[in-house]
């Protein structure tokens, strides 16, 4: 007789299923990404996945933990995909390897493995690499001049020289640079008028990628894999501050829609801040966490020195999770006022 403790019934759920659903939800975004910005991202995903699995296996082996259940849980793959999607698609292969390995080895396993990491591993990878290799992390493929797959691969694997023609800034960065260079003489409207770069709302091509993430996120919410609290409050935080500044000075600040659909906003809202391990757990805590992350991401992205602020915002909020959780414990049954 197997030793079972009650309840004898369990729902057909597992960490693996949760992670697989998260991966599935990423597919629309990835498809748009590969279609509009070249298939190099698929290569990056492959590299990141392989690195993550190898690093995970090595760490499990070192800790004498069984490989099967932990490799199979899919959490390392989710981390890998998020890293591949957050990094520039033309980043050299070793950058992705370094980032992913750092995320799995340091950010995840040195803190105790699955469920124990206080920081989002993918965001740690992004932060570490952008601090260490700022130039490489800011080279994004030019949006209107699509390179073919072979050229992109050659870049990723260092076979061809990194030409400026093949890389550029993201719309977010472009806007920031243009505004800075213009020193008040240009306005957001004139800069973003270039539809070839900025598309209709937030950047040619990028808006579709973001829409893909949004679609996946809504599907996840419908499947009850993620709750609405963090995602919605993240988007609300970003909308609120960008909207306020935009209303105050539309010439200098882009509209909320631009910010929601550019950079890592959508990916962050539905796949990064929703990470349960490093996020808040109480309903009110989730609202505070998401809202603050949205707010901070905007501030760092617009006023800070980095092209995007989602990673730093999330990491900073990860630090605050224990204290937020402590002070937002919900009242229990029978103890409500």
């Amino acid at each position: 007789m197997d030793f079972i403790t009650p309840p004898y019934l369990t729902q057909n759920v597992s960490v693996r299923r949760v992670m697989l659903q998260v991966l599935a939800a990423l597919i629309p975004g990835i498809a748009a990404y590969a279609w509009l910005l070249g298939p190099a991202v698929l290569m990056q995903i492959a590299i990141a996945t392989a690195t993550a699995l190898l690093a995970e296996a090595a760490m499990l082996k070192l800790q004498d933990k069984p490989l099967g259940p932990f490799l199979g849980d899919g959490s390392a793959i989710v981390t890998a995909w998020l890293i591949a999607l957050a990094f520039p698609p033309l980043a050299p292969w070793w950058l992705i390897v370094v980032g992913t390995a750092f995320a799995i080895v340091v950010a995840k396993h040195l803190y105790g493995g699955l469920g124990q990491n206080p920081f989002n591993p993918a965001m740690i990878a992004f932060a570490v690499c952008i601090v260490s290799f700022p130039a490489l992390m800011s080279q994004w493929p030019p949006i209107n001049a699509q390179a073919n797959f072979v050229d992109q691969l050659a870049l990723v694997f260092g076979q061809s020289p990194r030409l400026d023609a093949l890389s550029g800034a993201t719309p977010l960065d472009a806007l920031k640079t243009a505004l800075k260079l213009g020193e008040g003489s240009t306005s957001v409207a004139t800069v973003t008028a270039d539809a070839a770069v900025f598309g209709r709302i937030a950047g040619h091509g990028w808006e579709w990628v973001a829409a893909g993430y949004l679609l996946g996120g809504i599907w996840l919410w419908g499947r009850k894999v993620i709750g609405w609290h963090v995602s919605m409050s993240f988007l609300a935080g970003m909308t609120l501050i960008s909207g306020a500044l935009w209303l105050w000075n539309p010439a200098h600040f882009a509209n909320p829609l631009f910010h929601l659909f550019s950079g890592g906003s959508m990916l962050g809202a539905f796949f990064i801040v929703t990470d349960p391990v490093s996020g808040c757990t109480t309903p009110r805590g989730k609202l505070i966490f998401g809202f603050s992350a949205g707010l901070l991401a905007y501030l760092i992205r617009v006023f800070g020195g980095y092209p995007d602020g989602v990673a730093f915002a999330v990491l900073l909020l990860n630090l605050c999770v224990p204290i937020i959780d402590l002070y937002t414990q919900p009242p229990i049954f029978g103890m409500k006022k």
Partner: peptide, 14 residues
Amino acid sequence: FPPPAPEMPCIRCG
């Protein structure tokens, strides 16, 4: 009542 799957770490999914 199938035997339980191995206990995995808590991922604080809530």
